[in-house]
Simulated assay, not measured.
Amino acid sequence: MRLVVARCAVDYTGRLTAHLPLAPRLLIVKADGSVLVHSDGGSYKPLNWMSPPCRLRTTTRTPEEAALDEDDAWTEQWDVAHDKSGDHLRVRLYKVLEDSAHELGVDPGLVKDGVEAHLQALLADNIETLGSGFSLVRREYGTAIGPVDILARDADGAAVAIEIKRRGEIDGVEQLTRYLELLNRDPLLAPVRGIFAAQAIKPQARVLAADRGISCVTLDYDALRGIDDADTRLF
């Protein structure tokens, strides 16, 4: 992982166009190829980013070369292009304050809370909740970046990766997207489609999931536990 603190300007072009004017920011380049731009506020969410699969190309100029460009005296430029969508992120660095690289190794993954773990177990035991003919392949199906909550087969025998959250947000969709990209490289599984399942799913997460061809399913915790029948209750 490379961490850079720099005065920079950022432009994003593709399905949308966005501009971040010159200011000090934290830039993160991860081993999976993703590039994130953070400010000192806004909690954990980046101001802009490019997720893999993407390619990063770096152009550098000496201080003397930069000084010749009075209108735009940047010293380093990052061009990040997404392999599939063609979206483009350009970061121009004008003054680098810190630049370091660290090898983090393989992350053991997030230890999920009891509610999500229980939801996973309940859904695995009631996999046909997702559709008639569904069958369970395995819970916690391992990938190089962590385990998929559930791997199943639908009525046609096609592989389905299921990510389960208590609250469905954009981060969960991003996580499932990364799993799908890896799983679809396996010729024994591909094509693999995704299902994002949660007790409540935010509208923004639904929009992103639909854009990426991922289905959304709202889970009824009590119904899965067998203490509530949604078909017979009045409301």
Rank of each mutant, 00 (worst) to 15 (best):
E98C: 03
R92S: 00
P46E: 07
W74M: 08
D40V: 11
T143Y: 12
L219W: 01
A81S: 13
P187I: 05
P108D: 10
A81R: 14
P147Y: 02
L151S: 03
A124S: 11
D32R: 09
R212M: 14
P63M: 05
S43Y: 07
R153Q: 08
D79F: 01
D149E: 10
R185N: 08
A198F: 00
D83A: 15
G133Y: 08
G157T: 00
Y12E: 00
L189Y: 10
Y141Q: 08
A223V: 06
V217F: 12
T62A: 05
V137P: 01
E140R: 13
F235K: 02
R57K: 14
D186Y: 08
R138C: 11
R57T: 14
L27R: 01
T75C: 11
P24C: 04
L97P: 01
D228Q: 10
A6W: 04
R2L: 13
V207S: 09
M1T: 13
A117D: 06
A161H: 10
A67H: 06
M50Y: 04
I145V: 15
A200S: 14
L3H: 12
V160T: 08
L36S: 12
A31K: 12
R193T: 15
L56H: 03
N48D: 14
V173K: 02
P191K: 08
A210V: 03
V91Q: 01
V4F: 06
N126Y: 02
N184T: 10
K112Y: 07
I201A: 02
V115T: 10
L188K: 11
A155G: 03
L3V: 11
P63G: 09
D40F: 10
G114H: 05
D228G: 02
G41N: 13
L122A: 04
D171I: 03
C54R: 05
T143E: 09
V29Y: 05
T59S: 12
P21R: 11
R153W: 04
L123Q: 00
V160Q: 12
A73V: 06
S43D: 15
L234N: 07
G86Y: 07
V80I: 15
A152I: 02
D220H: 13
V35G: 01
D149L: 02
E174M: 04
A6E: 03
T218A: 07
L188M: 07
L110T: 12
L188V: 02
K30D: 13
R61C: 04
T58A: 04
T129E: 12
V148C: 11
R166G: 14
E76V: 13
L130N: 01
S100E: 14
V106E: 12
R193Q: 09
L93R: 07
Q77C: 14
K30R: 15
R138E: 15
L110V: 15
E128F: 06
D222C: 09
W49H: 12
V106S: 13
A200K: 10
R206I: 06
A200Q: 11
L219P: 00
A197V: 07
A124T: 08
V217P: 01
V4R: 07
E116V: 15
H88F: 08
G131Y: 00
E140S: 10
D211G: 06
A155M: 08
P191V: 07
P52L: 12
K112M: 13
T58I: 15
P108M: 13
T177C: 08
G131L: 07
T17M: 07
H88T: 06
P108K: 09
